[in-house]
Design a protein around this nucleic acid. Structure first.
Length: 825
DNA sequence: GTTCTGGAAAAAACA
DNA sequence: TTTGTTTTTTCCAGA
């Protein structure tokens, strides 16, 4: 894969950059990690910085979008502007964004087909003597193993053993091993950052060995940009990437032990009392992820964000370490230099052979590298060691911002499902259960629709003749903001039964399936090409910056995005998430699941019958209503009466119990869940008690999700979701104001706190100045600030990017009014 | 020969 | 610390 290809069609904002920066994930606080590793590993993150720091040249590229980069980069073949856009790519025109660069390396050498990298690359990373790493540049890039002691530690004794292919179950299909799989045509052709996180973050998407592939016409470039790594490593990486547990810990067991530090946290609120960084506003159900407190983040962010200078410096330096500067322990800096991030930058020689990433230097990889560095190089993510906290502890809020990717919104941004004439809608929802497959297994097929067939997504209101790209990734389904799921990845399904063309790309460590939306098909796509891959909890939990725990975190949603080009080079991003999908074998078989509820609010007097639709209901299922205090404990709990005569396995009729306080003057949000016995509970569903004297607003038991009242009209991102799920999310601390913040990018959930916010979404999302500032003011914490429930339509305005705009356009610094913000619709 | 699936045993994590 | 239970991950086998 020629590094030259830096495919990012201006019109197709599939740009990775956004993802990279946007990933709040990376920014996300890693309380756990911080705790354990803070001191010891403090330096890791920074290490990545080292190489990146160097150039001013990088700067130019950094800020610019992918295409911009090209312009800045001599080596880049691609035209700055990509008039051809997606359509061109489809046509197979020479000008394909991806292709152009794809065939020729920056240095003029013919692009080689990209061989798979994965294992080799890792080895390289870990073994100084690796054949692939011989190149000096490589060394620079991959210093960790050689240079730093810390790195040395990385080399794992049992590394080879770890996820050795041989270890894979015979059943494993190549495709199922997404990351590793060479078999997957597209996959292989596209660089999977995770495949060789450290060495090939840059794999060039553009260069696809399989140009002749049927999918060739497909805009590959799209994915290219996405490669940018983000703190969150793609699951795919997990297996090998892991220098992790086994190797690191020396465990020989075929099954990696789960990181102890993380096990402590649980979805059900088992989180250790101690986590100081937990969100002050505990989610009703105890969210799996530990979130940094607003305060902490704000504090940090504030100091940084307020200073435009700091930001500028950061940007210029390209070196995260520099940013850290004062606040960062010397140790951290030191490590920084040694970090792998550099690896990401200069792997080219190696990458070529390996099929890994394109040479950074050539095509302004700086952007990527920069991003990687900031987010933590791929390597970092794989380090078994808790990641250096520095990023979290010392968020460099602005650094990335100014220059960050001008491209699309990060995956953890909350976007609306419709804007103006456009609406992205899930016409056919997926089944509520889909057993995900492990990498050690063969594929378990594509996600299906409950009524048979497959999910269908359609973009309404788009009258142009140019096809668009629909992005699909696996998102969370908990009570927090929607974000890429750390433990699940979309898996591309191919075969005779698959009628929809697709291709995989990596965006911020999240695998994204790109599916063309064609005018001739009415901008409608049948999603029969998407399976779900489960990553081992232990692999992910050790990932740098990962704060969630995988245990019992088995619900996901299919998240669809589309980026609609707007006049002036802007891009309107819409997003919609499916109903939750239970992915575990056991849960799917035993746990009750509430998909819908006929009513989501009622006066405190209660008495009304509410119909719950879902699965695994039993005749003796109980429905428990609970009111939680801010600290999470139950203030009130009562079992509602159920009508057993009307019982059905997929529906339950329950009588809304009277609320404990009949004199409330404002709506009170409570939750309820279905219980089939000990430990067999559904997720919490949200319910609102209204003051007795308040006229009842009839709520239709419709399937379609209605925007949460609190959030107002704006929300829709997840509109299609069943209320039940949303409701959970709505349970969040009501901050009306936050909800109203239009255009404010949802904070990156992953801990991306305020500081991160700007940086995270480097793109110029259309943020009204007011909104933006407001958002900032509200707090860095997504939950607080945006109130938007995970699935709920975050009160986010559609993200409009001005792709062509220079970084300067970014409302980069929080403190600054966003420059020319795009008019919101 | 593959891919999907459903089951279930083994292993790990929790309580 | 030990033991029972739950959940995760790996294997098998059949369609």
């Amino acid at each position: 894969m020629p590094s030259t290809s830096f495919p990012v069609p201006s019109k197709f904002p599939l740009g990775p950059a956004a993802a990279v920066f946007g990933s709040g994930e990376t920014l996300g606080p890693a309380p756990r990690t911080m705790k354990s590793a803070e001191e010891e590993h403090y330096g890791y993150a920074p290490s990545s910085v080292g190489p990146a720091l160097r150039l001013p040249t990088t700067h130019s590229s950094l800020p610019a979008p992918c295409h911009d980069l090209q312009t800045s980069t001599p080596g880049l073949v691609l035209p700055v502007e990509h008039p051809a856009g997606y359509g061109a790519a489809l046509d197979g025109g020479p000008a394909g964004y991806f292709l152009s660069s794809g065939h020729v390396r920056p240095n003029g050498a013919p692009a080689l087909e990209s061989p798979r990298i994965e294992i080799t690359s890792y080895l390289g990373l870990h073994h100084s003597n690796n054949q692939f790493l011989q190149d000096t540049e490589v060394e620079d890039v991959l210093p960790s193993s050689k240079r730093s002691p810390s790195t040395a530690t990385l080399s794992l004794p049992g590394l080879e053993a770890y996820r050795d292919p041989s270890c894979l179950s015979p059943a494993s299909s190549l495709s199922s091993r997404s990351c590793t799989s060479e078999a997957s045509s597209y996959e292989s052709s596209y660089s999977y950052p995770y495949a060789s996180p450290q060495t090939s973050p840059w794999q060039s998407p553009c260069v696809s060995p399989k140009t002749t592939d049927a999918e060739e016409g497909f805009p590959r470039g799209l994915g290219a940009c996405m490669l940018l790594g983000s703190p969150r490593h793609s699951p795919s990486t997990s297996p090998r990437a892991s220098v992790t547990e086994e190797s690191w810990l020396g465990a020989r067991s075929s099954r990696p032990a789960s990181p102890g530090n993380k096990r402590k946290y649980s979805l059900n609120g088992r989180q250790p009392p101690c986590s100081p960084q937990r969100s002050p506003t505990p989610s009703p159900h105890g969210s799996p992820r530990v979130s940094v407190t607003d305060d902490s983040w704000l504090g940090n962010s504030t100091q940084y964000t307020s200073s435009a200078i700091v930001a500028a410096i950061n940007a210029l330096t390209t070196d995260s370490s520099l940013d850290l500067g004062d606040g960062v322990p010397v140790k951290s800096r030191k490590t920084t230099l040694e970090q792998p991030p550099s690896v990401a930058l200069k792997v080219e020689p190696v990458g070529e052979d390996l099929g890994s990433p394109p040479p950074p230097a050539d095509f302004a990889p700086e952007d990527f590298s920069f991003q990687h560095v900031r987010k933590g190089g791929f390597c970092d993510q794989y380090l078994a060691v808790p990641q250096h906290p520095y990023q979290w502890a010392k968020p460099k809020p602005l650094s990335p911002t100014p220059y960050m990717s001008p491209t699309l919104p990060a995956l953890d941004w909350q976007l609306p499902s419709h804007s103006g004439p456009y609406e992205l809608r899930i016409e056919v929802q997926p089944k509520s259960h889909h057993r995900a497959h492990y990498e050690t297994e063969g594929s378990r097929g594509a996600v299906k629709a409950s009524a048979g067939g497959h999910p269908v997504v359609q973009l309404h209101g788009y009258l142009e003749n140019e096809p668009l790209m629909l992005q699909l990734f696996i998102g969370t389904a908990d009570d927090r903001l929607l974000r890429p799921h750390a433990f699940y990845q979309v898996h591309r399904i191919t075969g005779k039964t698959v009628s929809t063309t697709s291709h995989e790309a990596i965006l911020s460590n999240t695998k994204v399936l790109e599916i063309p939306l064609l005018p001739e098909n009415n901008m409608r796509a049948v999603i029969d090409c998407a399976g779900i891959l489960k990553l081992r909890n232990s692999d992910i939990e050790l990932r740098k910056g990962e704060t969630d725990i995988g245990r019992k975190n088995t619900r996901v949603r299919l998240v669809f995005r589309v980026h609609v080009p707007q006049p002036g080079g802007r891009t309107l991003s819409l997003q919609v998430a499916s109903n939750p999908i239970e992915c575990s074998q056991r849960s799917a078989q035993e746990l009750p699941l509430v998909e819908k509820q006929s009513t989501d609010s009622y006066p405190v007097v209660g008495g009304k019958k509410m119909v719950l639709s879902g699965h695994n209901f039993l005749q003796d299922s109980k429905v428990i209503f609970v009111e939680k205090a801010p600290d999470g404990h139950h203030v009130w709990e009562v079992e509602a009466k159920t009508d057993r005569d009307l019982y059905k396995p997929n529906s339950l009729v329950v009588e809304i119990p009277p609320f404990r306080n009949q004199r409330i003057t404002s709506p009170v949000h409570v939750s309820f869940y279905v219980c089939n016995g000990k430990r067999k509970r559904s997720q919490y569903q949200r319910f609102t008690y209204l003051p007795a004297n308040v006229p009842i607003i009839k709520t239709e038991p419709t399937d379609d999700f209605e925007p949460a009242p609190a959030c107002g009209p704006v929300s829709q991102g997840l509109s299609p979701l069943p209320r039940s799920y949303y409701s959970q999310q709505l349970a969040m601390p009501p901050d009306p104001g936050s909800c109203l913040v239009a255009g404010v990018p949802a904070c990156p959930q992953r801990g991306s706190l305020m500081p991160a916010a700007p940086g995270t979404s480097p793109k110029l999302h259309d943020l009204s100045p007011a909104a933006y500032s407001k958002a900032i003011a509200s707090s860095g914490h997504c939950h607080l600030g945006l109130l938007a429930p995970a699935g709920e339509a975050p009160t986010v305005t559609p993200a409009i990017q001005d792709v062509p705009r220079p970084a300067a356009m970014h409302p980069g610094s929080p403190g600054q009014p966003p420059p020319a913000l795009l008019p919101q619709q």
